[in-house]
Measured scan of single mutants.
Amino acid sequence: MAAGGDHGSPDSYRSPLASRYASPEMCFVFSDRYKFRTWRQLWLWLAEAEQTLGLPITDEQIQEMKSNLENIDFKMAAEEEKRLRHDVMAHVHTFGHCCPKAAGIIHLGATSCYVGDNTDLIILRNALDLLLPKLARVISRLADFAKERASLPTLGFTHFQPAQLTTVGKRCCLWIQDLCMDLQNLKRVRDDLRFRGVKGTTGTQASFLQLFEGDDHKVEQLDKMVTEKAGFKRAFIITGQTYTRKVDIEVLSVLASLGASVHKICTDIRLLANLKEMEEPFEKQQIGSSAMPYKRNPMRSERCCSLARHLMTLVMDPLQTASVQWFERTLDDSANRRICLAEAFLTADTILNTLQNISEGLVVYPKVIERRIRQELPFMATENIIMAMVKAGGSRQDCHEKIRVLSQQAASVVKQEGGDNDLIERIQVDAYFSPIHSQLDHLLDPSSFTGRASQQVQRFLEEEVYPLLKPYESVMKVKAELCL
Protein backbone atom coordinates (compact mmCIF):
# COMPACT_ATOMS: atom_id res chain seq x y z
CA MET A 1 0.00 0.00 0.00
CA ALA A 2 1.38 3.40 -0.93
CA ALA A 3 2.48 5.77 1.82
CA GLY A 4 0.38 8.83 2.50
CA GLY A 5 -3.37 9.04 2.68
CA ASP A 6 -6.46 11.15 2.36
CA HIS A 7 -6.00 13.43 5.35
CA GLY A 8 -9.58 14.68 5.14
CA SER A 9 -10.97 11.16 5.47
CA PRO A 10 -12.12 9.64 8.78
CA ASP A 11 -10.23 6.53 7.69
CA SER A 12 -6.88 8.35 7.72
CA TYR A 13 -4.92 9.65 10.70
CA ARG A 14 -4.79 13.40 11.09
CA SER A 15 -2.81 15.22 13.76
CA PRO A 16 -5.06 16.31 16.65
CA LEU A 17 -3.07 19.54 16.73
CA ALA A 18 -4.63 20.48 13.40
CA SER A 19 -7.97 18.71 13.64
CA ARG A 20 -8.78 19.46 17.28
CA TYR A 21 -6.67 22.12 18.94
CA ALA A 22 -4.73 24.74 16.97
CA SER A 23 -6.25 27.88 15.47
CA PRO A 24 -7.21 28.06 11.77
CA GLU A 25 -4.71 30.86 11.18
CA MET A 26 -1.77 28.85 12.55
CA CYS A 27 -2.86 25.72 10.69
CA PHE A 28 -2.98 27.73 7.47
CA VAL A 29 0.58 29.02 7.89
CA PHE A 30 1.78 25.40 7.97
CA SER A 31 -0.56 24.19 5.22
CA ASP A 32 0.51 22.86 1.83
CA ARG A 33 -1.27 25.73 0.11
CA TYR A 34 0.67 28.34 2.05
CA LYS A 35 3.94 26.50 1.54
CA PHE A 36 3.68 25.92 -2.19
CA ARG A 37 2.19 29.33 -2.87
CA THR A 38 5.25 30.79 -1.12
CA TRP A 39 7.50 28.64 -3.32
CA ARG A 40 5.87 30.22 -6.37
CA GLN A 41 6.23 33.68 -4.85
CA LEU A 42 9.94 33.03 -4.31
CA TRP A 43 10.34 31.92 -7.92
CA LEU A 44 8.59 35.11 -9.02
CA TRP A 45 10.80 37.31 -6.83
CA LEU A 46 13.90 35.57 -8.19
CA ALA A 47 12.77 36.08 -11.79
CA GLU A 48 11.89 39.74 -11.17
CA ALA A 49 15.29 40.42 -9.61
CA GLU A 50 17.13 38.52 -12.35
CA GLN A 51 15.25 40.51 -14.99
CA THR A 52 16.07 43.81 -13.26
CA LEU A 53 19.75 42.85 -13.22
CA GLY A 54 19.77 42.16 -16.95
CA LEU A 55 18.98 38.49 -17.53
CA PRO A 56 16.80 37.77 -20.62
CA ILE A 57 13.45 37.41 -18.84
CA THR A 58 10.43 39.09 -20.42
CA ASP A 59 7.60 41.07 -18.86
CA GLU A 60 5.23 38.52 -20.36
CA GLN A 61 6.94 35.70 -18.48
CA ILE A 62 6.82 37.68 -15.23
CA GLN A 63 3.13 38.44 -15.70
CA GLU A 64 2.35 34.81 -16.46
CA MET A 65 3.98 33.77 -13.19
CA LYS A 66 2.10 36.46 -11.25
CA SER A 67 -1.20 35.32 -12.72
CA ASN A 68 -0.69 31.73 -11.61
CA LEU A 69 0.58 32.09 -8.04
CA GLU A 70 -2.69 30.70 -6.68
CA ASN A 71 -3.37 28.27 -9.53
CA ILE A 72 -1.85 25.20 -7.89
CA ASP A 73 -2.79 21.77 -9.22
CA PHE A 74 -2.07 19.70 -6.12
CA LYS A 75 -3.04 16.45 -7.82
CA MET A 76 -0.56 17.04 -10.64
CA ALA A 77 2.15 17.99 -8.15
CA ALA A 78 1.58 14.78 -6.19
CA GLU A 79 1.77 12.70 -9.36
CA GLU A 80 4.95 14.48 -10.43
CA GLU A 81 6.54 13.93 -7.02
CA LYS A 82 5.63 10.24 -7.15
CA ARG A 83 7.31 10.03 -10.55
CA LEU A 84 10.37 12.18 -9.82
CA ARG A 85 10.86 11.45 -6.10
CA HIS A 86 11.63 15.16 -5.66
CA ASP A 87 9.11 17.61 -4.24
CA VAL A 88 10.73 20.81 -5.53
CA MET A 89 11.12 19.59 -9.11
CA ALA A 90 7.55 18.28 -8.99
CA HIS A 91 6.35 21.81 -8.27
CA VAL A 92 8.71 23.35 -10.83
CA HIS A 93 7.03 21.16 -13.45
CA THR A 94 3.53 21.88 -12.09
CA PHE A 95 4.13 25.65 -12.08
CA GLY A 96 5.65 25.42 -15.54
CA HIS A 97 2.61 23.55 -16.83
CA CYS A 98 0.35 26.53 -16.08
CA CYS A 99 3.08 29.02 -17.09
CA PRO A 100 4.32 27.58 -20.42
CA LYS A 101 6.00 30.81 -21.53
CA ALA A 102 7.84 31.18 -18.21
CA ALA A 103 8.59 27.48 -17.73
CA GLY A 104 12.16 27.80 -18.98
CA ILE A 105 13.19 30.49 -16.49
CA ILE A 106 11.46 29.18 -13.34
CA HIS A 107 14.05 28.27 -10.67
CA LEU A 108 16.84 29.75 -12.81
CA GLY A 109 20.19 29.29 -11.03
CA ALA A 110 18.52 28.13 -7.84
CA THR A 111 18.73 24.98 -5.74
CA SER A 112 15.92 23.26 -3.86
CA CYS A 113 16.81 25.03 -0.62
CA TYR A 114 16.20 28.37 -2.29
CA VAL A 115 12.48 27.68 -2.06
CA GLY A 116 12.55 25.14 0.78
CA ASP A 117 14.65 26.96 3.34
CA ASN A 118 13.54 30.47 2.48
CA THR A 119 9.92 29.38 2.75
CA ASP A 120 10.64 27.81 6.13
CA LEU A 121 12.13 31.09 7.34
CA ILE A 122 9.12 33.04 6.08
CA ILE A 123 6.84 30.56 7.84
CA LEU A 124 8.84 30.78 11.09
CA ARG A 125 8.65 34.57 10.98
CA ASN A 126 4.93 34.64 10.25
CA ALA A 127 4.17 31.97 12.84
CA LEU A 128 6.06 33.98 15.46
CA ASP A 129 4.04 37.02 14.40
CA LEU A 130 0.90 35.03 15.21
CA LEU A 131 2.16 33.92 18.62
CA LEU A 132 3.40 37.30 19.86
CA PRO A 133 0.00 39.05 20.17
CA LYS A 134 -1.55 35.90 21.63
CA LEU A 135 1.05 35.81 24.38
CA ALA A 136 0.64 39.55 24.92
CA ARG A 137 -3.10 39.06 25.41
CA VAL A 138 -2.51 36.34 28.00
CA ILE A 139 -0.18 38.67 29.89
CA SER A 140 -2.71 41.49 29.65
CA ARG A 141 -5.55 39.36 31.05
CA LEU A 142 -3.40 38.14 33.91
CA ALA A 143 -2.22 41.70 34.58
CA ASP A 144 -5.86 42.78 34.98
CA PHE A 145 -6.40 39.85 37.33
CA ALA A 146 -3.30 40.71 39.38
CA LYS A 147 -4.19 44.39 39.64
CA GLU A 148 -7.72 43.65 40.85
CA ARG A 149 -6.45 41.25 43.54
CA ALA A 150 -3.16 42.93 44.41
CA SER A 151 -4.14 43.30 48.08
CA LEU A 152 -6.14 40.08 48.61
CA PRO A 153 -4.16 38.06 51.19
CA THR A 154 -3.67 34.37 50.57
CA LEU A 155 -1.62 31.64 52.14
CA GLY A 156 1.75 31.22 50.48
CA PHE A 157 3.24 27.78 49.96
CA THR A 158 6.82 26.59 49.81
CA HIS A 159 7.31 22.84 49.26
CA PHE A 160 3.48 22.93 49.04
CA GLN A 161 3.49 23.48 52.79
CA PRO A 162 1.98 26.60 54.41
CA ALA A 163 4.42 29.50 54.47
CA GLN A 164 4.16 33.28 54.93
CA LEU A 165 1.17 35.06 53.46
CA THR A 166 1.32 36.65 50.03
CA THR A 167 -1.50 38.09 47.92
CA VAL A 168 -3.43 36.55 45.05
CA GLY A 169 -2.20 39.36 42.79
CA LYS A 170 1.44 38.93 43.81
CA ARG A 171 1.30 35.20 43.10
CA CYS A 172 -0.17 35.96 39.67
CA CYS A 173 2.76 38.31 39.03
CA LEU A 174 5.10 35.33 39.37
CA TRP A 175 3.28 33.84 36.39
CA ILE A 176 3.29 37.12 34.48
CA GLN A 177 7.02 37.63 35.00
CA ASP A 178 7.84 34.30 33.34
CA LEU A 179 5.52 35.07 30.44
CA CYS A 180 7.09 38.51 30.00
CA MET A 181 10.47 36.83 29.63
CA ASP A 182 8.92 34.53 27.03
CA LEU A 183 7.44 37.50 25.15
CA GLN A 184 10.82 39.23 25.06
CA ASN A 185 12.52 36.04 23.89
CA LEU A 186 9.93 35.41 21.17
CA LYS A 187 10.37 38.98 19.92
CA ARG A 188 14.15 38.66 20.01
CA VAL A 189 14.25 35.39 18.08
CA ARG A 190 11.75 36.78 15.57
CA ASP A 191 13.81 39.93 15.00
CA ASP A 192 17.03 37.90 14.77
CA LEU A 193 15.72 35.75 11.91
CA ARG A 194 17.76 36.13 8.74
CA PHE A 195 16.86 35.07 5.22
CA ARG A 196 18.83 32.27 3.56
CA GLY A 197 18.74 34.29 0.40
CA VAL A 198 20.10 33.37 -3.03
CA LYS A 199 23.11 31.13 -2.38
CA GLY A 200 23.18 28.16 -4.78
CA THR A 201 23.88 24.51 -4.12
CA THR A 202 26.63 24.72 -1.50
CA GLY A 203 26.24 28.34 -0.50
CA THR A 204 28.96 29.71 -2.80
CA GLN A 205 26.60 31.43 -5.28
CA ALA A 206 28.61 29.84 -8.11
CA SER A 207 25.59 29.32 -10.39
CA PHE A 208 24.56 32.96 -10.11
CA LEU A 209 28.11 34.16 -10.65
CA GLN A 210 28.06 32.19 -13.90
CA LEU A 211 24.66 33.60 -14.89
CA PHE A 212 25.98 37.13 -14.42
CA GLU A 213 29.27 36.35 -16.16
CA GLY A 214 31.46 36.86 -13.11
CA ASP A 215 29.83 40.10 -11.92
CA ASP A 216 30.14 39.91 -8.11
CA HIS A 217 28.12 43.08 -7.61
CA LYS A 218 25.10 41.74 -9.50
CA VAL A 219 25.16 38.51 -7.50
CA GLU A 220 25.17 40.50 -4.26
CA GLN A 221 22.42 42.75 -5.58
CA LEU A 222 20.33 39.71 -6.51
CA ASP A 223 20.66 38.34 -2.98
CA LYS A 224 19.78 41.72 -1.47
CA MET A 225 16.80 42.34 -3.76
CA VAL A 226 15.16 38.97 -3.09
CA THR A 227 15.81 39.33 0.64
CA GLU A 228 14.06 42.71 0.67
CA LYS A 229 11.15 41.41 -1.42
CA ALA A 230 10.65 38.70 1.21
CA GLY A 231 10.48 41.32 3.95
CA PHE A 232 13.75 40.50 5.70
CA LYS A 233 16.27 43.14 6.75
CA ARG A 234 19.26 40.89 6.12
CA ALA A 235 20.32 37.50 4.85
CA PHE A 236 23.02 35.12 5.98
CA ILE A 237 26.37 35.89 4.40
CA ILE A 238 27.50 32.32 5.02
CA THR A 239 25.40 29.21 4.35
CA GLY A 240 26.00 25.67 3.26
CA GLN A 241 23.26 24.27 1.11
CA THR A 242 20.87 25.17 3.94
CA TYR A 243 20.69 27.93 6.50
CA THR A 244 22.33 26.77 9.72
CA ARG A 245 20.03 24.49 11.67
CA LYS A 246 21.07 26.35 14.81
CA VAL A 247 18.25 28.73 13.88
CA ASP A 248 15.72 25.96 14.48
CA ILE A 249 17.32 25.30 17.87
CA GLU A 250 16.97 28.96 18.80
CA VAL A 251 13.32 29.12 17.79
CA LEU A 252 12.21 25.86 19.39
CA SER A 253 14.18 26.60 22.57
CA VAL A 254 12.12 29.74 23.07
CA LEU A 255 8.91 27.82 22.41
CA ALA A 256 9.97 25.08 24.83
CA SER A 257 10.67 27.72 27.46
CA LEU A 258 7.17 29.10 26.90
CA GLY A 259 5.87 25.57 27.42
CA ALA A 260 7.63 25.40 30.79
CA SER A 261 6.04 28.69 31.86
CA VAL A 262 2.55 27.59 30.87
CA HIS A 263 2.99 24.21 32.57
CA LYS A 264 3.95 25.89 35.85
CA ILE A 265 1.04 28.35 35.68
CA CYS A 266 -1.55 25.70 34.89
CA THR A 267 -0.17 23.35 37.54
CA ASP A 268 -0.63 26.12 40.11
CA ILE A 269 -4.20 26.66 38.92
CA ARG A 270 -4.89 22.92 39.19
CA LEU A 271 -3.55 22.82 42.75
CA LEU A 272 -5.58 25.89 43.70
CA ALA A 273 -8.66 24.23 42.20
CA ASN A 274 -8.10 21.27 44.50
CA LEU A 275 -7.88 23.70 47.44
CA LYS A 276 -11.10 25.31 46.15
CA GLU A 277 -9.46 28.74 46.21
CA MET A 278 -9.51 29.33 42.45
CA GLU A 279 -11.03 27.71 39.37
CA GLU A 280 -10.72 27.97 35.64
CA PRO A 281 -13.94 28.75 33.73
CA PHE A 282 -16.53 25.97 33.89
CA GLU A 283 -19.40 26.06 31.39
CA LYS A 284 -23.01 25.57 32.49
CA GLN A 285 -23.39 22.43 30.36
CA GLN A 286 -19.85 21.15 30.96
CA ILE A 287 -19.51 17.61 32.37
CA GLY A 288 -16.57 16.88 34.65
CA SER A 289 -17.00 13.12 34.89
CA SER A 290 -19.28 10.55 33.28
CA ALA A 291 -19.57 8.75 36.63
CA MET A 292 -19.26 11.56 39.20
CA PRO A 293 -21.66 14.42 38.35
CA TYR A 294 -20.29 16.71 41.08
CA LYS A 295 -16.83 16.87 39.52
CA ARG A 296 -15.41 20.20 38.30
CA ASN A 297 -12.18 19.07 36.70
CA PRO A 298 -9.64 21.72 35.58
CA MET A 299 -9.75 20.27 32.06
CA ARG A 300 -8.30 23.30 30.26
CA SER A 301 -5.34 23.59 32.60
CA GLU A 302 -4.76 19.86 32.29
CA ARG A 303 -4.79 20.18 28.50
CA CYS A 304 -2.23 22.98 28.69
CA CYS A 305 0.03 20.85 30.87
CA SER A 306 -0.34 17.86 28.58
CA LEU A 307 0.54 19.84 25.46
CA ALA A 308 3.25 21.88 27.19
CA ARG A 309 5.10 18.66 28.00
CA HIS A 310 5.02 17.78 24.31
CA LEU A 311 6.28 21.24 23.39
CA MET A 312 9.16 21.04 25.84
CA THR A 313 10.36 17.73 24.40
CA LEU A 314 10.37 18.94 20.78
CA VAL A 315 13.51 21.03 21.25
CA MET A 316 15.51 17.80 21.26
CA ASP A 317 14.76 17.33 17.55
CA PRO A 318 16.57 20.42 16.21
CA LEU A 319 19.42 19.87 18.67
CA GLN A 320 20.07 16.44 17.23
CA THR A 321 19.39 17.55 13.66
CA ALA A 322 21.96 20.35 13.82
CA SER A 323 24.53 17.94 15.21
CA VAL A 324 24.29 15.54 12.24
CA GLN A 325 24.49 18.05 9.39
CA TRP A 326 27.72 16.82 7.78
CA PHE A 327 29.74 19.39 5.86
CA GLU A 328 27.43 21.48 3.61
CA ARG A 329 24.32 19.40 4.52
CA THR A 330 22.78 15.97 4.72
CA LEU A 331 19.14 15.01 4.37
CA ASP A 332 18.95 13.95 8.02
CA ASP A 333 17.07 17.17 8.64
CA SER A 334 14.27 17.00 6.09
CA ALA A 335 11.70 14.52 7.40
CA ASN A 336 12.30 15.52 11.00
CA ARG A 337 11.82 19.23 10.34
CA ARG A 338 8.56 18.61 8.47
CA ILE A 339 7.20 17.32 11.78
CA CYS A 340 8.86 19.19 14.63
CA LEU A 341 8.65 22.77 13.34
CA ALA A 342 4.95 22.61 12.58
CA GLU A 343 4.12 20.68 15.74
CA ALA A 344 6.01 23.14 17.94
CA PHE A 345 4.10 26.13 16.62
CA LEU A 346 0.71 24.42 16.54
CA THR A 347 1.27 23.28 20.12
CA ALA A 348 2.39 26.72 21.30
CA ASP A 349 -0.60 28.25 19.53
CA THR A 350 -2.97 25.85 21.28
CA ILE A 351 -1.66 26.42 24.79
CA LEU A 352 -1.74 30.20 24.35
CA ASN A 353 -5.32 30.14 23.04
CA THR A 354 -6.32 27.90 25.94
CA LEU A 355 -4.46 29.91 28.58
CA GLN A 356 -6.04 33.13 27.32
CA ASN A 357 -9.45 31.50 27.66
CA ILE A 358 -8.58 30.41 31.20
CA SER A 359 -7.23 33.82 32.19
CA GLU A 360 -10.34 35.57 30.90
CA GLY A 361 -12.56 33.58 33.26
CA LEU A 362 -10.57 32.75 36.40
CA VAL A 363 -12.82 32.51 39.46
CA VAL A 364 -11.50 33.27 42.96
CA TYR A 365 -13.20 32.20 46.19
CA PRO A 366 -12.16 34.74 48.88
CA LYS A 367 -14.11 33.03 51.67
CA VAL A 368 -12.25 29.77 51.13
CA ILE A 369 -8.95 31.65 51.07
CA GLU A 370 -9.92 33.47 54.27
CA ARG A 371 -10.80 30.23 56.00
CA ARG A 372 -7.46 28.66 55.11
CA ILE A 373 -5.66 31.74 56.40
CA ARG A 374 -7.57 31.46 59.69
CA GLN A 375 -6.43 27.85 59.99
CA GLU A 376 -2.74 28.73 59.66
CA LEU A 377 -2.40 32.36 60.71
CA PRO A 378 -2.48 31.77 64.49
CA PHE A 379 0.75 29.78 64.28
CA MET A 380 2.33 32.43 62.05
CA ALA A 381 1.27 35.19 64.44
CA THR A 382 3.02 33.71 67.48
CA GLU A 383 6.18 35.77 66.99
CA ASN A 384 4.13 38.98 66.80
CA ILE A 385 2.25 37.95 69.94
CA ILE A 386 5.51 37.33 71.80
CA MET A 387 6.85 40.75 70.76
CA ALA A 388 3.62 42.44 71.90
CA MET A 389 3.84 40.71 75.29
CA VAL A 390 7.47 41.81 75.75
CA LYS A 391 6.45 45.40 74.95
CA ALA A 392 3.71 45.06 77.59
CA GLY A 393 6.33 44.08 80.21
CA GLY A 394 6.39 40.29 79.90
CA SER A 395 9.38 37.95 79.70
CA ARG A 396 10.22 36.65 76.24
CA GLN A 397 11.22 33.23 77.57
CA ASP A 398 8.11 32.84 79.74
CA CYS A 399 5.88 33.93 76.86
CA HIS A 400 7.65 31.61 74.43
CA GLU A 401 7.02 28.64 76.71
CA LYS A 402 3.36 29.56 77.18
CA ILE A 403 2.91 29.87 73.41
CA ARG A 404 4.73 26.59 72.81
CA VAL A 405 2.42 24.67 75.13
CA LEU A 406 -0.75 26.26 73.77
CA SER A 407 0.41 25.75 70.16
CA GLN A 408 1.00 22.05 70.74
CA GLN A 409 -2.46 21.72 72.27
CA ALA A 410 -4.06 23.53 69.32
CA ALA A 411 -2.09 21.41 66.83
CA SER A 412 -3.35 18.27 68.54
CA VAL A 413 -6.94 19.44 68.09
CA VAL A 414 -6.30 20.00 64.37
CA LYS A 415 -4.39 16.79 63.68
CA GLN A 416 -5.81 14.29 66.16
CA GLU A 417 -9.43 15.46 66.37
CA GLY A 418 -9.89 17.11 62.97
CA GLY A 419 -10.99 20.33 64.63
CA ASP A 420 -10.22 23.96 63.84
CA ASN A 421 -7.14 25.77 65.02
CA ASP A 422 -8.16 27.19 68.42
CA LEU A 423 -4.83 28.70 69.46
CA ILE A 424 -6.20 32.23 69.58
CA GLU A 425 -9.18 31.13 71.68
CA ARG A 426 -6.73 29.52 74.13
CA ILE A 427 -4.72 32.74 74.29
CA GLN A 428 -7.89 34.79 74.78
CA VAL A 429 -8.89 32.81 77.89
CA ASP A 430 -5.40 32.64 79.37
CA ALA A 431 -4.93 35.36 82.00
CA TYR A 432 -1.20 35.51 81.29
CA PHE A 433 -1.95 37.19 77.95
CA SER A 434 -4.51 39.67 79.32
CA PRO A 435 -2.20 42.68 78.69
CA ILE A 436 -2.55 42.13 74.91
CA HIS A 437 -6.06 40.68 74.59
CA SER A 438 -7.27 43.97 73.10
CA GLN A 439 -4.50 43.83 70.46
CA LEU A 440 -5.20 40.34 69.15
CA ASP A 441 -7.47 41.41 66.28
CA HIS A 442 -4.81 43.81 65.04
CA LEU A 443 -2.05 41.24 65.48
CA LEU A 444 -4.07 38.77 63.41
CA ASP A 445 -4.98 41.10 60.54
CA PRO A 446 -3.89 39.14 57.42
CA SER A 447 -2.93 42.32 55.56
CA SER A 448 -0.19 42.97 58.12
CA PHE A 449 1.48 39.70 57.06
CA THR A 450 1.70 40.35 53.30
CA GLY A 451 4.64 42.74 53.44
CA ARG A 452 5.00 44.91 50.33
CA ALA A 453 3.13 42.48 48.06
CA SER A 454 0.52 44.97 46.83
CA GLN A 455 3.13 47.68 46.23
CA GLN A 456 5.29 45.18 44.35
CA VAL A 457 2.35 44.30 42.11
CA GLN A 458 1.68 47.94 41.28
CA ARG A 459 5.32 48.72 40.56
CA PHE A 460 5.85 45.57 38.49
CA LEU A 461 2.81 46.23 36.32
CA GLU A 462 3.63 49.89 35.76
CA GLU A 463 7.38 49.56 35.18
CA GLU A 464 7.68 46.24 33.38
CA VAL A 465 4.40 44.83 32.13
CA TYR A 466 2.47 47.75 30.65
CA PRO A 467 5.46 49.12 28.66
CA LEU A 468 6.08 45.63 27.25
CA LEU A 469 2.45 45.34 26.12
CA LYS A 470 2.23 48.79 24.51
CA PRO A 471 3.14 47.62 20.95
CA TYR A 472 0.21 45.17 21.08
CA GLU A 473 -2.54 47.60 22.18
CA SER A 474 -4.39 47.34 18.87
CA VAL A 475 -4.94 43.56 19.19
CA MET A 476 -5.83 43.34 22.88
CA LYS A 477 -9.61 43.06 22.46
CA VAL A 478 -9.56 39.70 20.65
CA LYS A 479 -11.26 37.01 22.74
CA ALA A 480 -10.19 33.37 22.90
CA GLU A 481 -12.99 30.95 22.06
CA LEU A 482 -12.57 27.23 22.61
CA CYS A 483 -14.69 24.71 20.74
CA LEU A 484 -13.49 21.76 22.82
Rank of each mutant, 00 (worst) to 15 (best):
D192C: 00
K66E: 02
A206G: 09
K477T: 15
S306W: 00
V198W: 05
L461S: 03
M76R: 09
T158A: 03
H91T: 05
R194G: 12
H91W: 07
D191T: 09
S448L: 14
G203V: 01
S448G: 13
D317W: 04
C305K: 00
P318W: 09
R137N: 10
T313H: 07
P16I: 12
R190D: 08
R329H: 07
N421E: 09
L484T: 15
V92Y: 03
V390P: 05
G259A: 15
L275D: 09
R245E: 01
H442K: 04
I139L: 11
G96R: 03
Q184F: 13
E376K: 05
R404I: 00
L482G: 12
T204W: 01
R149P: 02
V364T: 02
D430A: 15
M316P: 07
S140F: 12
C172R: 05
L346G: 07
W326A: 05
P133R: 14
A235D: 10
T244Y: 01
L42A: 06
H217L: 06
I139N: 15
S447L: 14
Q325L: 10
P153F: 06
Q241D: 03
R188D: 11
V390D: 04
L121S: 12
G394C: 10
T227G: 09
R426P: 00
D422G: 11
E220M: 13
P293E: 00
V324K: 01
M76D: 09
E481Q: 04
L469N: 12
L69A: 04
S301G: 15
V219D: 00
P293V: 02
F460R: 04
S474P: 14
F157R: 09
W326P: 00
D191G: 07
K170V: 02
K415F: 06
I57P: 04
K402R: 14
D333Y: 00
Q51Y: 07
G288Q: 05
R190A: 13
A348F: 03
D32W: 09
R171E: 03
S253H: 08
G394L: 05
E279Q: 11
R33F: 02
I373C: 11
W175E: 10
R171M: 03
Q458G: 13
D430C: 08
A127M: 01
T450Q: 14
D120V: 08
D87L: 11
P153R: 02
G200P: 01
I57L: 04
A230E: 00
A335L: 03
G259S: 09
A431R: 10
G240K: 07
D430K: 04
I386S: 05
K147R: 05
D129N: 11
R83Q: 06
Q161F: 04
L211H: 11
L346F: 00
M380H: 02
S31A: 12
K470N: 09
P162L: 12
N68T: 10
M278K: 01
Q210C: 10
L377R: 03
G200K: 00
S301K: 01
Q375F: 15
Q375R: 05
M65L: 03
V315S: 09
D73T: 04
R372V: 02
A22R: 10
D422K: 11
L131M: 06
Y294C: 01
Q241H: 00
P133D: 09
D182C: 01
E383L: 01
V251R: 08
V198S: 08
K246V: 03
E383I: 01
G231L: 12
Q375H: 09
D215T: 12
V429H: 08
R196P: 03
E463M: 13
A308K: 01
P100V: 15
S454A: 12
S323Q: 04
I106G: 02
D430P: 15
Q439S: 04
S438V: 14
L484M: 14
N126V: 08
P293N: 01
L179T: 14
R194M: 04
A291W: 11
N336F: 01
L53C: 09
I72F: 05
G8D: 12
A273I: 11
F212N: 05
P293Q: 01
L482T: 14
I403P: 03
M389G: 11
S31W: 01
G418W: 06
S151P: 15
S257Q: 10
M181D: 14
V457Q: 02
W45R: 05
R309H: 09
E220Q: 05
A103F: 12
M380D: 00
L307G: 10
I238A: 01
F327K: 00
C340S: 08
L271A: 09
M316E: 04
C305N: 05
N274E: 07
V247Y: 10
F28V: 06
V405R: 12
R141N: 14
L128N: 15
P471A: 14
L355E: 01
I373H: 08
S395F: 08
A22P: 14
K199V: 10
S334F: 01
L275Q: 06
M476A: 13
L53H: 01
A230F: 00
V475I: 08
A49M: 06
G361H: 15
E50A: 08
K199H: 00
A143G: 09
F232Y: 10
E48W: 01
H159V: 01
E279C: 03
A410L: 07
D73R: 06
D6Y: 01
A2M: 13
M181W: 09
Q164G: 01
R190M: 15
V115L: 10
L346R: 07
G451D: 03
I424M: 13
K477Y: 15
E302C: 06
D87Y: 08
F74V: 13
H437T: 10
R374F: 03
D223S: 03
L165T: 02
Q409K: 11
P10Q: 14
M181A: 14
Q61W: 04
R141D: 06
S151D: 10
G240M: 07
D215V: 09
L331N: 09
A127E: 09
I403D: 01
D420M: 03
H107K: 06
W39H: 14
V429E: 13
F232Q: 02
I436S: 06
T58V: 13
N357A: 12
F327W: 02
Y432F: 14
F36W: 11
K147C: 08
F379T: 05
N185A: 13
V324G: 07
T382V: 09
L307F: 14
R303D: 02
V254G: 13
Q241M: 08
M387K: 02
C113F: 02
D144H: 09
M89S: 04
A411D: 00
P133F: 10
L440S: 00
L183M: 08
T52G: 08
T201R: 01
L131H: 12
E250S: 08
A273W: 03
F157V: 03
E383G: 02
M89H: 15
C98E: 08
R303C: 13
Y432R: 07
Q416K: 10
V368D: 02
R33N: 02
F208T: 06
K233L: 06
F74K: 10
R234P: 00
Q409I: 02
W39Y: 14
C483V: 14
M380P: 01
F345E: 01
R20K: 11
A235F: 08
S289N: 02
K477C: 12
E80G: 11
V254R: 05
E464L: 08
T111F: 02
W175G: 06
A348I: 12
G203F: 03
G104V: 11
L46G: 01
G54Y: 04
A388N: 10
I427R: 01
L352G: 07
L406R: 07
H107T: 03
A127I: 07
I403Q: 02
M380A: 02
S448N: 11
L362H: 07
E277L: 01
D6W: 11
E463Y: 10
V465F: 01
L331E: 01
Y466W: 15
N421I: 12
Q320Y: 09
L222S: 01
R270F: 00
K101Y: 02
S454I: 14
D191A: 11
P162E: 03
R33D: 04
D333H: 01
A2K: 11
R37C: 09
D398G: 09
F145W: 10
D59G: 05
Y365E: 14
L423A: 06
V368L: 03
L55A: 02
P378F: 06
G393N: 01
T239C: 10
